[in-house]
Design a protein around this nucleic acid. Structure first.
Length: 195
DNA sequence: AGTATGATTGCCT
DNA sequence: GGCAATCATACTG
């Protein structure tokens, strides 16, 4: 039983990843008070050959098969960390990769961690997001509705244009349009291809 | 036990 | 645009 807590009740993490992913655009994510608005996400699930969960549970992807509404953190290219939100019913192996933020809180801290000044380079890309937020392996499995995490809904009435496109950096199922982003945001990891 | 491979980034030409 | 960095994971034998 995973009763949604008030802090994140506005997101239904039981829904499929490809539905949660676009609904996260505009949501503010903070780690110990540092973070910003999500402007880019990607969805992955077990039926998806590009997903870490595709071949079933392993020690690395265990969080994806655990309760929804938690963090799945993995090491990328032996160098970077990447942050995902676990979705779907427990055991389904689905998640949403947080690919880019528009920084709002704790800019100084993020500049410190990232070693760059340009606000557009603080969290534009999944590795940069994790570094800016100070997220590493110790955050794997943590609940998203309790400290150090905090999620804040997109302000009511605010209209955000969500764009769709193919996911980035994958070889298999490269045509699946499960990348979502705020149209024309200067904080995207990459622009969306023209259609 | 050995090997191939990334859901990336930053620096170089 | 090209490529090195860097290593845990997963797969092969």
């Amino acid at each position: 039983m995973t009763a949604p807590s008030p802090a994140a009740a506005f997101i239904d993490f039981l829904a499929p990843a490809h539905e949660v992913a676009p609904s996260l655009i505009g949501v503010e994510v903070l780690v110990d008070g540092v973070g910003g608005r999500i402007v880019e996400t990607e969805a992955y699930d077990r039926e998806d050959p590009a997903s870490h969960s595709h071949r079933g549970p392993t020690p690395r992807n265990a969080a994806m098969f655990g309760p929804p509404g938690r963090a799945y953190v993995y090491r990328s290219y032996g160098i970077h960390w990447c942050l995902n939100f676990v979705c779907g019913p427990e055991g389904h192996g689905a998640g949403v990769l947080i690919r880019a933020l528009a920084p709002t809180e704790g800019l100084a801290r993020m500049r410190e961690r990232r070693g760059v000044q340009d606000v557009r380079l603080l969290a534009a890309g999944p590795g940069r997001v994790a570094q800016a937020l100070g997220v590493d392996a110790s955050f794997n499995h943590l609940r998203l509705d309790a400290p150090p995490f905090e999620l804040r809904p997109r302000p009511a009435g605010e209209n955000i244009q969500v764009q769709t496109g193919p996911r980035i950096g994958i070889t298999r199922a490269a045509d699946v349009p499960w990348r979502f982003g705020e149209a024309a945001s200067p904080f995207l990891s990459r622009p969306f291809p023209r259609r």
